[in-house]
Design a protein around this nucleic acid. Structure first.
Lengths: 201, 201
DNA sequence: GTCTATATTTCGATAGAC
DNA sequence: GTCTATCGAAATATAGAC
């Protein structure tokens, strides 16, 4: 036999892989099921054996990112909402750097299809999950137990990581990944660790 | 007369305003010309009196952002590409904060329609302009005249601003804008000003 | 300038053979 | 599991009256 038996589950995963590629390249709304099938060498109708609707392909990929984000939020919420959380932030950002590196494509898809996300979740039960994640981060960054400046520093740390990893184009492409991560962590540690003297009222 | 004469040019601007709203809410791909016309109280066909194609509405809005970004890049490129540029970065970020505040909707549209942008500019002559802008920022952040850590700090400063302004949800909604800007500028200044001792080779 | 009406295309989704 | 064939909806864009 030229190919191994039972390619069913493998095909399903291949569909998700190809869809992820295309959702990144052209975006969800500009990717037709024909595009996905064509790149896989099958027909559009075959996709419906694995997925009921086009949305399900996107949602299934997106839920993988939800799971990762959920775990990170679990950890940071496990510590008290005051100075303990500020102290735990550098470790959280390190974790974020690891996850963003290992799940780069899922992150890219998420970042490039924000409007598709909003409209999809408007009609879905998953709306609850999705908004819940954002609300949890919001609540952390709104905690009255932490000074405004510290909360801004916490948000800035996240922004610093995402900017370097996803929005700086190819500016850091020629830097060895390990070196870039080390440098970024040093900068973030500095950003978070610096305590300014309380401003005079 | 119930309304002033010659509403032509005003209508054109109203189309752009409504389109901007909808491109932010639902995204470019999920906004039909019928949606735009409906919100304006006119018909779909009337839009074609002002714009040749749907893309032109989006491109015209996007070019306004290009103009703003171009001016900022002009300024930062006007100073030498070494330590002078590092020294000029805090002022550049301040400028960025002002522009992002004053052009918040254009920024939101840009950030939420990244895939639409890519596919649009694939077939347009404006591709040159668009990629040129990104390339200019890339070149600045790739300058061999600046240490890696400083370049990471420069990128991180941009990320910090965009995170707080656009990605932190409503976490800072209850902070007076002026106070938030001041706090952000202090954090950024700290982020950029801190010079670490050169690491031992 | 704005309308009605329509041409044309593309897409998601389904039916049914193999 | 994958195919061919097709339906129905929605979108962009055009033609021409007013």
């Amino acid at each position: 036999m030229a190919r191994p038996r039972s390619q069913g589950p493998q095909t399903r995963e291949r569909i998700l892989d190809v869809a992820l590629e295309l959702f990144i390249e052209r975006g969800y709304d500009r990717t037709s099921l024909r595009d996905i099938a064509q790149r896989l060498g099958i027909t559009k109708a075959a996709l419906y054996y694995y997925f009921e609707r086009k949305e399900q392909i996107f949602i299934e990929l997106h839920l993988r990112l939800h799971a990762i984000a959920g775990v990170i939020l679990d950890e940071i919420e496990a510590v008290g909402d005051g100075s303990e959380r500020v102290a735990a932030w550098p470790a959280m950002v390190s974790r974020l750097i690891v996850e963003m590196t290992e799940n780069r494509n899922l992150m890219l898809m998420h970042r490039r299809n924000q409007t598709a996300l909003v409209t999809l979740y408007t009609n879905e039960a998953n709306l609850l999950q999705h908004e819940a994640l954002e609300a949890r981060l919001d609540r952390i960054l709104s905690s009255p137990a932490i000074t405004l400046e510290q909360r801004v520093r916490m948000a800035a740390a996240i922004g610093a990581v995402t900017e370097v990893f996803f929005d700086s184009g190819s500016a850091f492409d020629h830097v060895p990944p390990a070196e870039l991560r080390a440098c970024l962590q040093a900068v973030v540690a500095d950003l978070l660790g610096t305590q300014r003297a309380p401003a005079p009222a």
